[in-house]
């Protein structure tokens, strides 16, 4: 679904790379958790996959399409929830979702049904006709998730999606991520909440100072550490402390 091969990214004239020689692959039907301390390179990696940043070296493909040369095809396959939700705030949520549906060529007959379905799922149904500027942080986050889902992408990419969500919405999002992968589609998300990653992810990748220091299933990581009863949080702290 996603292949990242020997990708390096530097910002401006900085001597240090934000992401260095990163390689990983995401297979269809998996939920991949991307973990790492602040400034490790998680968001930079995500922004390269969705086409917000371009890598200096290496290649990234989504569904076989190169992110630098086939940008439109790649973007059509992705549903992206950024770390900070961004909208045309003077639109109502309904207008904004219609706009997204038109851009992604969602068939007319399916549009309203999908908007209403996803809005109901995230309890936004009653405020669809309100201006987005009147939404709270959590409501904007939920609208961001609905926006990413409404065009039925092949790959869902979420950057810290749990931030700002109430417990019920966080629970629904986890359910949705599971359902999403059942049809062979994939989820790639970054998080600082280790419990979520532990329970939800098929595999996790841990990035530190721009390099991938671990990438496997939770149980494989436990086995590799030699202690079968460590939580993901403990493993994460152990690995990142060692690397420091």
């Amino acid at each position: 679904m996603v292949t990242i091969q020997s990708v390096t990214k530097k910002y401006g004239n900085s001597a240090k790379a934000a992401v260095e020689n990163l390689s990983l692959a995401l297979v269809p039907g998996e939920i991949f958790g991307f973990l790492g301390p602040n400034g490790a390179g998680k968001s930079t990696t995500i922004k390269m996959i969705v086409g917000l940043l371009s890598q200096d070296t290496g290649t990234i493909t989504v569904d076989g399409h190169d992110t630098l040369n086939e940008t439109v095809l790649v973007k059509q396959r992705i549903g992206y929830v950024p770390d900070e939700p961004l909208f045309y705030e003077k639109m109502t949520a309904n207008e904004y979702l219609q706009f997204i549906c038109e851009i992604y060529r969602v068939p007319n007959e399916a549009r309203q049904e999908r908007i209403v379905r996803w809005a109901k799922r995230f309890s936004l149904h009653g405020v669809l006709d309100d201006q987005i500027s009147s939404y709270s942080r959590g409501m904007k986050q939920k609208l961001g998730i609905v926006t990413a889902l409404v065009h039925e992408p092949r790959l869902l990419i979420l950057d810290e999606p749990m931030v700002g969500l109430d417990p019920k919405s966080a629970f629904i999002l986890k359910e949705v991520m599971h359902e999403f992968c059942e049809g062979g589609r994939s989820v790639f998300f970054s998080t600082h909440v280790m419990e979520v990653a532990e329970r939800l992810c098929t595999r996790v990748g841990i990035i530190m100072n721009g390099s991938l220091i671990a990438c496997d299933t939770f149980h494989a990581l436990q086995e590799r550490s030699g202690s079968g009863d460590l939580s993901l949080e403990q493993l994460f702290l152990e690995m990142t402390d060692e690397t420091e």
């Binding site: 917000l52 973007k75 059509q76 961004l86 909208f87 045309y88």
Partner: peptide, 13 residues
């Protein structure tokens, strides 16, 4: 434009 980060991720040429 403040909306450019939003538009850059959409499937637009």
């Amino acid at each position: 434009g403040k909306d450019l980060p939003l538009l850059l991720v959409l499937p637009l040429t």
